[in-house]
């Protein structure tokens, strides 16, 4: 069940993404509000609405954003934070993944509890030194919550900006992709000298 096919997710990677049952149900769901979700996100992307949270509280969003920064970090190029992945995640939980929003929240609470259990007095991943934070995340990377967070961060960084993440195409430019209606040869380094024949 693990083959990739025509750009489709393989089961392995959806499992990797979502860590089993929770993720499967999330993905099994119809996403009834998807059309509205994208309309709202489109307006935010167009600057007609300020980026606003729907489901996550400001402190929850801050924690999810901090987590997303460990998944796709910011260095000399933008990461999940600059891409606004947290807005994609919040949008998903507000609308088309709304039935699983509370499960996500429970996961976030549990994540915080685990953190405090292993690091007394610490309530946010951003309070740890980077190496400690990474070490802690390694211990929870197999949880449904982390994997769901991973999947949504990747989508929130690389999906079409219409869904609230990948702000101004920051995720795309980070990986070197550009969405255009048309291109002309040469396309890359290796075909630079290839054009001019009958093609």
């Amino acid at each position: 069940m693990e083959e990739p096919l025509f750009g489709l997710p393989s089961r392995r990677d959806f499992l990797r993404a979502s860590g089993g049952a929770v993720g499967w149900t999330v993905l099994a769901a119809r996403f009834p509000g998807a059309a509205q979700a994208s309309q709202k996100a489109r307006r935010i992307a167009a600057g007609e609405l300020p980026p606003a949270l729907g489901f996550l509280s400001p402190s929850e969003a801050a924690e999810v954003e901090a987590l997303s920064a460990f998944i796709i970090p910011t260095d000399d190029t933008p990461g999940a934070v600059e891409a606004g992945a947290v807005y994609f995640i919040d949008g998903a939980l507000t609308e088309f993944m709304q039935p699983w929003a509370e499960t996500f929240r429970d996961g976030l609470i549990e994540f915080g509890e685990d953190l405090t259990k292993t690091h007394t007095g610490v309530t946010s991943i951003s309070e740890l030194a980077e190496a400690d934070a990474v070490a802690f995340l390694r211990t929870v990377e197999d949880t449904s919550f982390f994997r769901l967070c991973w999947m949504l961060t990747v989508w929130g960084t690389l999906a079409d900006p219409a869904y609230g993440g990948n702000r101004d195409g920051a995720g795309w430019s980070m990986i070197g992709f550009e969405d255009r209606h048309a291109w002309h040869p040469p396309f890359g380094h290796y075909d630079a000298d290839a054009h001019g024949g009958d093609e």
Binding site: G7, P9, R16, I72, P73, V154, W155, L158, W172
Partner: peptide, 20 residues
């Protein structure tokens, strides 16, 4: 395309899948 490149472009389960 980009989204599924991020999901599974690298093939192996042992490849890094988060972080720098």
């Amino acid at each position: 395309h980009p989204m599924f490149w991020g999901m599974e472009g690298f093939g192996s389960r042992d490849d890094p899948w988060w972080g720098s």
